[in-house]
Design a protein around this nucleic acid. Structure first.
Length: 527
RNA sequence: GGCCCCGUCGUCUAGUGGUCUAGGACACCGGCCUUUCACGCCGGCAACACGGGUUCGAGUCCCGUCGGGGUCACCA
């Protein structure tokens, strides 16, 4: 039997972290069994702008490298892959359910059902529909219809015994049928409801394993009943724990962004992203720029492999030491049996830590192309990047080293791209390193002359140059290096000093130092 | 409220009756390295929800309590 799994999002225009985690597990499971992963769109007829709402979701999957064998854009032998286009099949299934007596036409008004429900509540017993307006045969149906009543189709659920099924994550489950209701599967207008549609589509698409969030656990008995009544062999089920929000056990929700922002770690995650997006000159509305949504990480420049890795660890683990999983390793080691049953909290700090590890492992030549689009979108580099600029960016990325945690972090190093006469000085650093220390200006001026005379301008030579200067002047390294840093970058912190000077090059270093000296010698213009 | 699920450091987790004075990772704290920042290295803090059983022995099995969550639609 070929393993076939599916993910069935409704086209909302957004890809939720919890959703992709589910999709990822489905994808891995099918891939490691040499099976297929199917994408089905659980849309409804009312859906407008389907394409617009679908595209971001497909983009998200593509970005993460979760590819689908059948579904939108690629088609497949079980088309259509849009639930709204499968209505005929759903109706046929309803007819069959009616034929075999697993469903009935119910002529009750919603208000009448509601009345029974409240009565049950009042008497403190669990609600169980009396089936008073159930049409046993055509005659009865005609009588109800003559009263002007309209019929929906309800499942005729068992009222004794238990539904027993095996869950690949939770083991054997037994649920009393009495706790179930006669769920509506078809409305009066003939349209079918999700549970019916889902079971029919899964079966017709040959889905063997339904791996989904635990929210659906309580839906399983009715789906199991539908499948069995239709003569299907129910698929294997695996219910994943949900992804919880930071700081509580509630389900992570995209709608609660404002609340999450009160939490320190989450705020840091968001602020980091915001800093990057701002540098690009954009202000993103919270409905798309939201760390609960996958797109956030793409915009900010996380590595898809890192996000995949983190999501994998949300509810699954291999053993007591291994945490880093490449695409290959995921396929090798993943198993449903090792999924945890308890909900896993989303932890921004851990995500960042995983991202850092992946970034560190990435060779320079792969980092540069990730970073270039940010520089271009910020307007710091021309659209076709010349070889010289490319080289310089590579040098910056190299010098940045571990400081570059996400691709967008490159925007922190604006000072390499600003014209020499527009460099902005950090006031505190300027004071501390240039104005306050006695003799700083003179030292800087003398070091400037050494730089001007320098023949080699690579980091090693520059370091030697400065060491010599320190010896000659009988000062400590700290007395000159900080002054140079502020003069040349405007900031108190940055890359290694000599790498920085080398990247800038002799001419720009001199220009910047000269400008700083000029300002230092003209107190009226003090920065 | 009914039904269902879950409960090991702050967080993610390892743990399938003895090797658990409970291991790892992230975070946090201290130290080292150091031209700043970041990295790295060393060390530290820190958990079996509680109560009963079963057993020679329980984080591990059973029952109960408590706590948290999910779900109870003519939504998907």
């Amino acid at each position: 039997m070929t393993v076939r799994t599916r993910f069935a999002p409704s086209p909302t225009g957004q890809l939720h972290l919890g959703g992709v985690r589910t999709a990822l597990f489905n994808w891995i499971f099918s891939r490691q069994h040499g099976g297929q992963f199917i994408l089905r769109i659980d849309d409804t007829d009312q859906q407008r702008n389907l394409q617009e709402a679908l595209e971001p979701i497909l983009d998200g999957f593509r970005w993460l490298g979760i590819d689908w064998d059948e579904g939108p854009e690629v088609g497949g032998p079980h088309a259509p892959y849009f639930q709204s286009q499968r209505a005929d099949r759903h109706r046929q299934a309803v007819s069959r359910l009616l034929e075999v007596g697993a469903a009935y036409r119910d002529f009750a008004h919603p208000a009448e059902i509601q009345a029974e429900r409240t009565a049950a509540e009042r008497e403190q017993r669990s609600f169980c529909y009396s089936r008073r307006w159930m049409a046993e045969d055509e005659d009865q149906a005609a009588r109800f219809a003559a009263e002007g009543r309209q019929a929906v189709v309800r499942l005729k659920m068992p009222r004794s015994g238990q539904c027993q099924f095996h869950d690949l994550v939770r083991g054997q489950l037994e649920i009393d049928w009495t706790s179930e209701q006669d769920h509506v599967i078809q409305r009066a207008d003939g349209s079918c409801l999700y549970h019916l549609a889902s079971v029919v589509d899964d079966h017709e698409m040959g889905i063997t394993h339904v791996i989904r969030a635990v929210e659906h656990l309580s839906n399983t008995p009715r789906q199991w009943f539908i499948a069995r009544s239709l003569g299907y062999e129910p698929p294997a089920f695996a219910h994943l724990p949900f992804v919880a929000e930071p700081g509580s056990s509630n389900k992570l929700s995209k709608r609660k962004l404002q609340e999450y922002l009160k939490q320190a770690d989450f705020r840091r995650l968001y602020a980091h992203g915001e800093r990057i997006v701002r540098a690009l000159g954009r202000t993103e509305p919270p409905d798309t720029f939201n760390p609960v949504l996958v797109d956030f990480y793409r915009q900010v420049g996380y590595l898809p492999a890192a996000l995949n890795n983190y999501l994998l660890l949300l509810g699954w683990s291999l053993d007591d030491r291994r945490e880093d999983f490449s695409r290959q390793a995921m396929l090798e080691y993943f198993s449903l049996e090792r999924i945890n049953r308890a909900p896993a909290r989303f932890d921004p700090q851990k995500l960042l830590a995983i991202e850092e590890r992946h970034m560190r492992a990435l060779p320079l030549e792969e980092k540069v192309p990730l970073v270039l689009p940010y520089l271009q979108r910020a307007g710091w580099l021309p659209e076709p990047v010349g070889e010289a600029a490319r080289q310089q960016v590579a040098a910056i990325v190299q010098a940045a080293g571990d400081r570059l945690k996400v691709a967008g972090d490159i925007l922190d190093y604006v000072d390499f791209f600003t014209p020499d006469d527009q460099l902005v000085y950090d006031p505190a650093a300027w004071q501390k390193r240039l104005v306050k220390p006695p003799g700083a200006v003179e030292l800087l001026a003398r070091f400037r002359d050494r730089l001007a005379a320098a023949e080699a301008f690579d980091p090693a030579a520059l370091e030697q140059q400065m060491q010599q200067f320190v010896t000659d002047e009988e000062i400590k390294l700290g007395q000159i290096i900080h002054a140079v840093r502020v003069a040349v970058t405007g900031k108190a912190v940055g890359f290694g000093m000599f790498e920085t000077l080398a990247i800038l090059g002799q001419a720009r270093c001199l220009a910047r130092i000269d400008r700083a000296l000029q300002r230092l010698n003209a107190p009226a213009n003090e920065s």
